[in-house]
Amino acid sequence: MTDSAKPRTRAADKRRRLSAAAAQVLHKQGVERTTLADIAHAADVPVGNVYYYFKTKDELVSAALSEHGTHLDELTGSLDRLPDPRERLKALVEAWVGQRDTAARYGCPTGTLAVELDKRADGTLDAEAAVVIRRLLDWAGQQFRALGLPDPDDLAVTLVSAYQGMSLLASALRDPDIMTREGARLLHWLDSLEAPDRSP
């Protein structure tokens, strides 16, 4: 690596650390309670350096949403390696349940951020959160479509709505077992779905 490339690499690493820290801290504290200093501390970056990479807190919120989108793409990318679409959907539910303790404390990372951003009168960050959720809906819809099920996009809404609901209840009641129980119901529901018989 050349000497001139090293500063660029360090800068990219700091920006990445700040984005990842923003995603974590905003999930735990919410937008209004989080300061740039909180994110700088979590990223182990001097607070004065934050402004070099992100001019405003909204830019960091946008970076956090991008981080959530990246995590979603990594998850769905790994699920796409499973040969059967039903198994992909069930593995998604199991991944959600695997995060039950975090969900019980803070809710769904993207869902809680979307709700908070929707209450703000300014900006377009709520639309950015919607884009991440739409990607999940689209992916789930593709799986239901591959199974030959009718109304695949509606089934995707049912699945993602169930996840958001159980995350919200688990968080509100501080009860991770809600995720476990409702996840089991979702797995049973996925197993029960059958494509219509098209034989003459």
Rank of each mutant, 00 (worst) to 15 (best):
G30W: 06
E116S: 05
N49Y: 09
F54E: 07
P46T: 08
L149A: 07
A43F: 09
G98V: 07
D177T: 13
D58H: 07
G48I: 02
L75N: 01
Q143V: 09
K57C: 04
R17W: 04
Q24K: 08
V25K: 03
V31W: 13
A162E: 11
G48H: 04
W139D: 07
I178R: 12
E59W: 09
M1C: 14
D3N: 10
A195M: 05
L125Y: 06
L169R: 13
L186T: 05
T124I: 04
A20G: 04
G77C: 06
A156W: 02
A172D: 08
P7D: 02
R88Y: 10
A64T: 03
D177Q: 14
G123L: 12
R134D: 13
R88C: 10
A21V: 14
A12T: 00
V45I: 15
K119P: 01
G111P: 02
G77A: 05
Y52F: 11
A114P: 02
Q99L: 09
T9Y: 13
D80R: 13
I133F: 04
A64Y: 06
Y52G: 09
L36V: 13
E128F: 10
E128C: 01
K6M: 13
A11L: 06
A5R: 09
R135I: 00
G165W: 12
V61C: 12
G141M: 04
L149K: 04
W96H: 10
A184C: 02
Y106I: 01
N49W: 02
Y163R: 14
I39S: 10
K90Y: 01
T56Q: 15
E67H: 12
Y51W: 08
V131N: 03
M179S: 12
E128K: 15
W139T: 04
A130I: 02
D138Y: 01
W96R: 14
H188N: 13
P7G: 12
D177W: 11
H188V: 07
L92A: 13
E94I: 10
G148M: 01
V93D: 08
F144H: 04
K6G: 05
R86H: 04
L75W: 02
G141A: 14
E116P: 08
S161E: 05
